[in-house]
Design a binder for these strands. Structure first.
Lengths: 158, 158
DNA sequence: TTTTATTATCTTAACCTTAAGATATTTGAT
DNA sequence: ATCAAATATCTTAAGGTTAAGATAATAAAA
């Protein structure tokens, strides 16, 4: 299939931005691409354990906190209450956690990891970490530390 | 609301990974957070022009290519054909682009930017660039260049 | 030439997220 | 003690993405 059919022309764009802006834009594009390709792989890894990325993150929180109000999970992983309800329902149906009503504050429901959930996570977390580590193979340790530093600054700058 | 109700305990986690893995994981977390907070702001900016981020990206491609097969847009911005159909429909309804059937290959439909689309993008692209530039204020120019280098390596490492 | 494989677009259903708002409970102010 | 504001969870509807597959057209192979 030929791609030239008469009218095509490359770059009518006559907007030129200064060098600083250009490098900011480039950074944004490169960051997006890196994030997407890494996250795609990470998601595949989590799916291979039978968990969506949101479920994985919730379970990770529960693994470290054992019992925590639903609300606080949403704050930690930055999703809305609707999404928490949805994902907690799924994890509860799978038997990896259960809801426990608070006796102190009847508005509150705790999420509590079950033995099955803990066993699952004991198994998959090391696998996941080593999968992430492999993804980061493009940088050596010193570069990673610098990259961490830059990305922290970027995140805060917003 | 007290957060301690009897059974809580911090970190039952007894999995310890080596230092390299730990810094890979940290990098992944920091990258995710930076991406999300930057992208949240960028999306707000695009919404302020009346475009979703996907619509913005499609229009950006069209602005530079003028006319391009639908398929190739999906390849450029990494979305599936279903998503292209959805977003092209919206842009076409808004009058910013139109479908043009190829006369050479009847399977192919070109997306072609309209004058209205070009005018819109002439207006909003400089605004968007300066908005992105502001978001990147956490790093100076040299740091940006280094960050770009690292992120390229990371993206390729996958 | 006929068949087979590939390609481009569109359709549909499922999934996941958010925003808005409903309900119930608790806290704080008067 | 009462009323208003704040908080936690859930519900619903809408937006947007993907995966799978339907359809049609072209290219390649037998």
């Amino acid at each position: 299939m030929s791609e030239l059919e008469g009218l095509e022309q490359e770059s009518k764009n006559n907007f030129v931005c200064d060098k600083d802006q250009a490098s900011s834009l480039k950074l944004f594009v490169v960051l997006s691409k890196a994030y997407r390709s890494l996250m795609d792989q990470a998601v595949k890894d989590m799916k291979s354990y039978g968990l969506s990325s949101a479920e994985f993150m919730v379970l990770e929180v529960l693994y470290h906190r054992n019992r925590i109000p639903l609300q606080q999970i949403g704050e930690k992983i930055l999703v809305t209450s609707g999404s928490i309800t949805y994902n907690i329902d799924k994890l509860e149906n799978k038997g990896f956690m259960k809801r426990v009503p608070s006796s102190e504050d009847r508005r509150v429901t705790y999420a509590e990891i079950t033995e099955a959930g803990r066993e699952l996570f004991d198994t998959i977390f090391p696998l996941h970490v080593s999968s992430i580590h492999a993804l980061m193979g493009g940088l050596n340790t010193g570069e990673k530390d610098q990259a961490i530093d830059f990305l922290k600054k970027l995140g805060k700058g917003v």
